[in-house]
Structures are given as structure tokens and as C-alpha cells.
Amino acid sequence: MDFILASVIDGLLLGFVYGVAAMGLTLIWGVMNVINLSHGPIIALGMFGVYLIFGAFSLNPYVAILIVAVLGLVLGVAIYYVAVQRVINAPHLSTLLATFSVNMIIIGLGTAIFSASPRNVEFSLGSLTLGPITLLGTRVVAAFAAMLVAGALYLFLYRTRYGRYIRAVANNRDAAELMGVPSNRILALSFGLGTMLAAIAGGLIATFFPFTILAGGAYELKSFVIGVLGGLGNPIGALFGGLILGVLEGIIPTFMPTTWVPVVEFLLFVLILLVRPQGLFGAKS
């Protein structure tokens, strides 16, 4: 029983981080109906960003994540203007191909520069023991950081002018334009925020898991599952979706082989799409 409790809590902690990654994917979808296939490689870039900054300047990894967040924002805005803007009104296949191209470019360059051998950030915060449960310090901090990020995103979207612009453009781009909102710039900002969240999630994961430049793919798929769970386009739903997936990942290995985790996850994915395509938390239809 203790073992299961420990797995659940461990999964929850991880779930917060998954949630942040998924928030990035779902924010971009919700605002501009673009499925960002470069999501995974950007998560991986977040990992490498923390790895490199930590390695080169011995900065605290959490400070490094702040830098990575800013770089993620800038990178996302650049990707938007170079690759996404010109296909924003085109059929979905065009936006898929455009973001997939970015995916291939990042992975190609990343493999050439870093090779595909695993790296890890040599950093530890010890562990925390609560009765029968032992938790890794880095995971506890990552979960708190993820909560902060989710809270900040919420405040930004619902309490600031630019957050209101983002929601307005998501709801009705033409109307926003009529209200004087430069909608193209707002889309660029939204894409940047989406990639920033992906990079932050990557940076947090790097503090406790080893990774390669290809590591983002798995988290991208998880983001899809979570996004659908929480309702695509609903960033707050994504956080809850992340928690559900995290808990599942914690529990499943306690009664079946770990290799079954993705099987269960994707069964759930298909099931949700069949039964409740708007996600567990309502969101937009």
C-alpha cells in the first residue's frame, strides 16, 4: 500500500511537469489551430539549454531554466514569423508540414552538434522522506516550479491586457483586429509562449532524467494525450490532464510491466477521442 502511495505521489509530481509541456501545445492549438509538431524538439532544446548553461557557467539549474524560458519565447516568436505565419490560414496539412520541418531542422542540427548519446545534468537536491515515502528533491522542486508556471500563465491570460488580447484573438481573430489588436503579433506572442512552456518543461525534466536530442518526442506524444484529456485548447485543463497521466504512469508499473505504460496511455487517448472528444474538462467545442 505504501508502495502504491509513493508511486502515486511520484507520478503526481511528474504530472505537473507534463502538464506544463502540454499547456504549451494546447495554448498554440487553442489560439491559432496549429498543431505544433516541433513541440518535442523544443522540449529537448530546453533540456540541452539547461545542460549547457549549467555546464558552462555552473549556474543553478533553476536559474538556467529562467534563461531557457526567455530563449524559448524568442525562439518561438522566430519560428512563428519564419515558418508558421505564412501558412496560418492554410489547411491543417500545411501547418503540420511547416512545424514538422522545424522539428526535422532542430533534430538534424541537434544530432550533428550533440550526437545522440545521452546527457544528464549532474545536480541533486537529495531526497525528502515523509514517513514511508521518499521523494527526490529535484522532482518536488520541479512540481512546485510547474505550479508556479501554471499559475503565472493563468494570471497572464486572465488578468493582463496582452492575455486578454490572446484570448480575444483565439475567440475571434477578425473581431480582435477590428478592435485595434494587431492579431499577427498576438499570434507570434502566443506561439512564443507555447514554446516557452515546452522549453521550461524540458528544463525541469532535465534536472532528474537523462536525455538525448531525441528525448522530446516521448513528451510530445504525452502532451497530445494530456491535451486531449484536458480538452485541446484549454491550458488549465492541460494541467489536470498532466496530473492524471502522471498518476497513471506512477500506478501502472505497480501491477503490470512498465512497457505497458504507453499502451494504456494511448488506449485512454483513443477512448477519450471516441467518448468525449471535447476532453474531460469541457473546453471549447
Binding site: 484570448r167 480575444a168 483565439a170 475567440n171 477590428l178
Partner: peptide
């Protein structure tokens, strides 16, 4: 009309006041 249907009445009005 082209309202922001997901937003409240007051938020729609505040959106109207977006120009500097």
C-alpha cells in the same frame, strides 16, 4: 456582430477599448 462569445459582456466592452 462578431462578439467574443467566450468572454463576458464586460470583457467584450473592455476589448472594445483596446485602441490607445
Amino acid at each position: 456582430r462578431q462578439l467574443f462569445t467566450d468572454m463576458s459582456v464586460e470583457e467584450n466592452l473592455i476589448m472594445g477599448a483596446s485602441p490607445k
